[in-house]
């Protein structure tokens, strides 16, 4: 229903950049590049080391804006409805808080450290996503 183009080269290149950022953040700040952890630290009450987190977030937000301003294209389409975005957002927020991480923290950094918790978390959230999309698209026809 919403076809997207298979982009192995750009996706691989983007993935390598994400990995490079994770390695640099460990080398320079000694931190895991997990978006959940970084974001949670700047939601009041602020973490004592909120400043590098805020800097990372600012960089992460402005880079795509600069890329587009410089003439780059970023495909973007949101099939879900506003209600689905709100419900999904709330569930993601609660889930990553209790699950102590998301795709970047568990799926990339934790898996790269071969952490049993991160491997378990990644397997669980990937399966849950596959099942959810199957149910919403093919059983409920949303």
């Amino acid at each position: 229903m919403f076809e997207t183009e298979f982009t192995p080269v750009m996706s691989l290149f983007g993935g390598i950049l994400i990995g490079l950022a994770a390695v640099l953040l460990m080398s320079i700040q000694g931190r895991i590049a997990g978006m959940t952890g970084i974001l949670t630290g700047i939601i009041p009450p602020l973490a004592s080391d909120w400043s590098w987190r805020a800097a990372f977030l600012i960089g992460a937000i402005i880079a795509p804006a600069i890329f587009v301003a410089a003439g780059g294209t970023v495909e973007f389409a949101v099939p879900p409805t506003t209600i689905a975005l709100i419900v999904g957002g709330l569930i993601v927020g609660v889930g990553v808080y209790f699950g102590s991480g998301c795709t970047s923290g568990h799926g990339v950094c934790g898996m790269a450290r071969l952490s049993p918790r991160s491997i378990a978390a990644t397997v669980v959230f990937m399966i849950a996503s596959f099942v959810t999309v199957f149910v919403t698209r093919h059983l409920l026809g949303m």
Partner: peptide, 17 residues
């Protein structure tokens, strides 16, 4: 928590990162 995150990700298509 991770199962919840996966469900939300499958509904909205966005993860935090």
């Amino acid at each position: 928590g991770s199962a919840g995150f996966g469900v939300g990700w499958g509904i909205a298509g966005f993860c935090p990162g």
